[in-house]
Amino acid sequence: MLEEVERWLIDRSWSVTDRPLHRILAAKRATGQTVSVVLPALNEEETVGDIVSVIRDELLLKAPLVDEIVVVDSGSTDRTSQVAAAAGARVVHRDEILPRLPAVPGKGEVLWRSLLVTRGDIVCFVDADLRDFSADFVTGIVGPLLTEPDVHLVKAMYDRPLGAAAGQGGRVTELMARPLLNMHWPRLAGFVQPLGGEYAARRSLLERLPFPVGYGVELGLLIDALHLVGLNALAQVDVGVRRHRHQDGQALGRMSAAIYRTAQLRLARGHLIRPALTQFERSGNTFEPRTYSVDTEERPPMAEIAEYRERRVA
């Protein structure tokens, strides 16, 4: 590990207990900054309501840390929108945001569009499939942005149990993302959960970053933030344990392909063929190939979008 990263692990890796809530609230009052929490959601009716309720009850009503909770529904066919609204979130459908630009499927697309329907100086992203959710996920990653003016992006780190096996989750991280980062971006090798969906950043940073539309969004944002603001402006906070729905091996394969493509584009933004991933499923006595396109599209920095600039002037 680079000496720079070893120093960074000491200076920029914290625990949620390092910043008690009263200290974070005092910093929020002193700086006057506002906080938006965004949950990208697709068919998460079983979990989204509990997450919204915890954030609303503990960090909006009981303690005024969060100024708005926005669930961006990316086309759910279940009751995700109704459950989220009943729990206290403002729900916006992906297709209602920037309608002149047709939406494409993908988590990154939803996160990018969320910048147009939120107002916070700090934007905190939380996945909508978390179970046993704790408000520590929000206070942990928002806290450093309120107390440390030179920090611009904070990722959560945590244990990720897979069933009864402690620490066996995050398979795409260990098999794809971590090797890529260590080989090509070794200054990012200190991040425990580089692909984690819980992170917060200053709007002033997010609006200057391109957003991969699919699963590569977390890796892309981390790499691009490193180049834009430097390692010392990035941090991570231990928030405990993350429990969520795990995907099957083939879904993880498609996720890995998108992440690899995101890295590939950042290594060589050249003339690359449009990639595809072929997987195999048993059908009777044989294996049938199934070919999927790999997410390659990226949205430009939001600061380049006319509607966003007009909103800032209004």
Rank of each mutant, 00 (worst) to 15 (best):
A189R: 13
A87K: 04
R29C: 04
V5R: 09
S114F: 03
L42R: 09
E46D: 14
G120E: 04
R7I: 09
P161E: 04
I259Q: 07
V126A: 04
L181I: 15
V142D: 02
I97S: 08
I122F: 08
F280Y: 15
I223W: 07
A263K: 02
G169A: 08
G169P: 01
V126P: 02
F133L: 03
E4L: 13
H22L: 10
E3I: 11
I259V: 15
A303N: 12
S36K: 04
R171M: 10
V35C: 10
R261H: 14
H93G: 10
S204H: 08
D50A: 15
L221R: 03
V104D: 14
I69N: 01
G167Q: 02
L153F: 12
G230D: 11
W14V: 01
T262M: 05
G88F: 05
R290M: 03
V138M: 05
T31R: 15
F211A: 05
A268V: 10
R290D: 06
A177Q: 12
P289G: 04
R243C: 07
L181W: 08
V70D: 00
G196I: 06
R266Y: 10
G216A: 07
V35T: 10
V48P: 03
A63D: 11
A41K: 07
Y308I: 04
A276H: 13
A85C: 01
A166F: 00
Q247P: 00
D295H: 11
V172R: 03
V70L: 08
V229S: 07
V35R: 02
Q33G: 12
L39W: 06
T34V: 05
R12D: 05
V229M: 07
H246M: 00
G253Y: 00
G230R: 10
Q236N: 10
P99Q: 08
T286P: 00
R254H: 11
G106H: 09
L265Y: 12
D121P: 06
E297T: 15
V16L: 01
E281F: 04
V16M: 01
L195S: 09
K28M: 09
R312A: 14
P275H: 07
A268Y: 08
R309Q: 15
A89Q: 09
Y158A: 08
V110E: 02
F211P: 02
G49C: 06
L234D: 03
E307A: 14
L153D: 03
A225W: 05
G196Q: 02
C124G: 03
A268D: 14
R119E: 15
R12L: 01
I55P: 01
V237D: 07
E3A: 14
P64R: 10
V35A: 08
R309W: 11
R7N: 12
P289N: 07
V71C: 06
M176D: 11
L228I: 12
R261W: 12
S74W: 09
Y260I: 13
L219M: 14
V104M: 14
D57P: 00
R311K: 14
A89I: 12
V104W: 06
T34K: 13
D295I: 01
K107R: 13
S36F: 11
P186Y: 10
